[in-house]
Amino acid sequence: MPIEILFKNTNCEWIDVESPTEDDLAYLHERYQINTLLLEDTIDANHLPKFEQDGNINFFLMRENTQSERFNLNTISDVSTKLGIFLMDKVIITIHRLNNRSIYEFKKEILLPQNEDITRDRIALNLALKVLKSYDDESKNLMEIMDQIESEIFLKTTNHSNHIRRLYRLKRKSGLNSRILNISTVWVEKFKMLDLDDSPVTDLKDKHKDVIGDFDHLNVQVASLISMFLAMSDQKANQVMKVLAIYSMYFFPITFIAGIYGMNFHFMPELSLKYGYYITLGIMGIISLITFVYVRKKGW
């Protein structure tokens, strides 16, 4: 997508670049004297959030949550996408590799009458708030998924056998988002350097603390749910072993007697008795009944 001017007034000019090419980056370097290393950071898929100042240029590198369902959850690029913001004089330049929801939403809002005299720093602040809101939305989404899995596990409303896999993916997504948010403290704190009132900057910091708290809570809840699921699985296995052990108690003495009479000795007691077979079966039945009464009395 070519370099596009999204907004312009007497206070500032907002330039947006989506999926920049090498020619686009070269133009930005020549036109605005932006360091090429900073420009390269905006196209590095796995670059961490940061803030850097180079002369009169303030560079914010943010990462917005994408709420994507990728197969692999190994790196921060699997759950987020970058948004680079350059602030200089009366110009703000935003650079991003993929379609960015924050840009898409705010370029509509900026045309509203109340934003007619908006400044460069105010645009950056609004974009930052939308970036953090993307994590707010994601935390709510993951919490709903966790509640659904929890209901399936404890209420047994489904027979899914992949609970542990879903919990693992939930844990991975939550952990990656937490990592991004903790590192984002670097650029959130730097908004106090801009020409902004204390109140909106405080709102930004509060939103940042809120989403960090949400994901910390989610991490704890997921870890607890995984532990409970494994404990319930172990309990179920123990219950099966308990039933098998009880059946073994019933059949062990009977098997012992049957084994004795299966040795085929010529002279054995009760072999010549007319009712020896029934007497032996009766003894087996009495032993089984005694075993049953004993087990019930013990509450096994």
Rank of each mutant, 00 (worst) to 15 (best):
I3Y: 02
I3E: 05
E4L: 11
F7G: 00
E13L: 03
W14H: 02
E18L: 09
S19R: 04
T21A: 00
E22W: 01
D24F: 01
L28K: 00
R31A: 03
Y32C: 00
N35C: 06
D44P: 04
L48N: 12
E52A: 13
E52N: 11
N56Q: 08
L61M: 03
R63E: 03
E64H: 01
N65T: 01
S68W: 06
T75A: 13
S77I: 05
L83R: 10
G84C: 07
I85V: 11
M88A: 10
I92P: 01
I93R: 02
I93C: 03
T94Y: 00
H96R: 01
H96I: 00
R101M: 10
E105R: 09
K107I: 05
I110A: 06
L111H: 12
Q114V: 15
E116M: 08
T119L: 04
R120G: 08
A124T: 06
K130A: 12
K130V: 08
K133P: 06
K133H: 15
Y135M: 04
D136V: 07
D137P: 04
K140M: 12
I153H: 11
F154K: 07
L155F: 10
T157S: 12
N159M: 07
N159V: 09
H163K: 10
I164A: 14
L167E: 09
L170M: 09
R179H: 11
L181D: 01
N182H: 12
T185G: 10
W187I: 09
K190R: 15
K190A: 15
F191C: 03
L194C: 12
D198F: 07
D198Q: 15
K205T: 10
K205E: 13
D206M: 13
H208P: 02
K209Y: 05
D210H: 15
I212P: 03
L225S: 01
S227H: 07
M232H: 13
M232W: 06
N238G: 01
V240P: 02
G262V: 07
L271D: 02
L273R: 11
L273F: 13
Y277S: 08
G282V: 08
V295H: 11
R296N: 13
G299K: 11
